[in-house]
């Protein structure tokens, strides 16, 4: 079957795009808060908490700041949401191959671009709000992007090389289904660990929440947002909880299987990655921006480079 327009719309809006990722993202957001609460010996919020938060934000007043750039301020969260939906759709279509459509959508370069679009929108939205703290946060986001981008590209490159120099996500998946998961090899394992830490920085989770730092610069770029616009930011951040671990699963853990016990195994992969990220988040304090640069440029990037060389050598 070839992809038609109607099918594409369905993929973007319902499954695996906006609706599916949004709902799953909000649920995982609850998991995040619940596990964090349990780590701190608290009870934590009820299951529907993040849905309540989101719907509440939709009904609040939107305040547009007078001394900001209004159009950019409004457009940034919408474009960010759009790019997250597209990442989720591209990764999702490839992962859930049983949709039964010839899928040559999952191009890794497009996905890397879209992830950068999200960060750029955070930067633009933050600097358009005419607030000192927001622009500070935006500046830190730029530095963080510079820090983690190279390591992340190298990580993606490892999967690309191991799949025989192809940037297509479905080819990467097919190679893994034929030869076993990439994480089983030394280069794949190193790349997976580096990739996990890069995701932590891409989603600005602790210890890399330098640009949002609630106690210091008051949520940074999101500070002046209120009402529905803030809701869209929160929704796209929640959707990253789905899209980015899915990408990592597609690159190194051999994707999802949906037959028999395979479902459990797939679920285990996803929940495992998410819980590891939550635990990293809860056990590390925020680091300074220079420490983050040091960590990414002097430790993780060389490691990722090593993994790339190993991958070229075929280990």
């Amino acid at each position: 079957m070839k992809a038609s327009i109607g099918w594409l719309l369905f993929a973007i809006l319902i499954f695996p795009g906006l609706f599916f990722t949004g709902v799953l993202g909000l649920i995982v957001g609850w998991l995040d808060r619940k596990v964090s609460a349990r780590v701190q010996y608290r009870v934590g919020p009820p299951f529907s908490q993040n849905f309540n938060d989101f719907f509440k934000l939709l009904g609040k007043e939107t305040i547009i700041v007078r001394n900001g750039i209004h159009s950019l301020f409004v457009i940034a969260p919408l474009v960010a949401l759009g790019s997250t939906v597209l990442i989720a759709t591209l990764v999702g279509i490839t992962l859930f191959q049983w949709l039964g459509v010839a899928n040559d959508f999952g191009d890794l370069i497009v996905i890397m671009y879209l992830m950068m679009v999200f960060s750029v929108m955070v930067i633009l939205g933050g600097s358009a709000s005419g607030n000192v703290y927001s622009s500070l946060g935006a500046g830190r986001e730029i530095k963080l992007l510079l820090a983690d981008e190279l390591a992340f590209i190298l990580v993606c490159l490892v999967a690309v090389i191991k799949a025989g120099y192809t940037f297509r996500l479905d080819a990467i998946l097919a190679t893994q289904q034929a030869q076993g998961m990439f994480i089983a090899s030394p280069s794949g394992a190193i790349a997976f660990i580096v990739g996990l830490l890069c995701l932590q920085a891409k989603m600005t989770l602790p210890p890399f929440h330098i640009s949002e730092a609630e106690t210091e610069i008051v949520e940074g770029p999101l500070m002046e947002y209120s009402g529905p616009l803030l809701g869209f930011w929160k929704l796209s951040q929640a959707m990253l909880w789905v899209a980015l671990p899915f990408l990592l699963i597609a690159l190194f853990l051999g994707g999802f299987t949906v037959e028999g016990y395979g479902i459990l195994w797939s679920l285990l992969k996803y929940v495992g990655i998410v819980v590891v990220m939550i635990l990293i988040k809860n056990t590390n304090p925020r680091i300074r921006i220079d420490t983050a640069l040091h960590f990414f440029w002097k430790i993780l990037t060389p490691l990722a480079f090593l993994a790339t060389i190993l991958a070229v050598l075929g280990v």
């Binding site: 808060r33 609460a37 009820p46 949520e219 500070m223 002046e224 803030l230």
Partner: peptide, 15 residues
């Protein structure tokens, strides 16, 4: 632990 009731302390008055 008032997060049980969904109460969260926010840093910005806009939220």
């Amino acid at each position: 632990d008032v997060e049980r009731f969904g109460i969260k302390l926010v840093g910005s008055v806009r939220h």
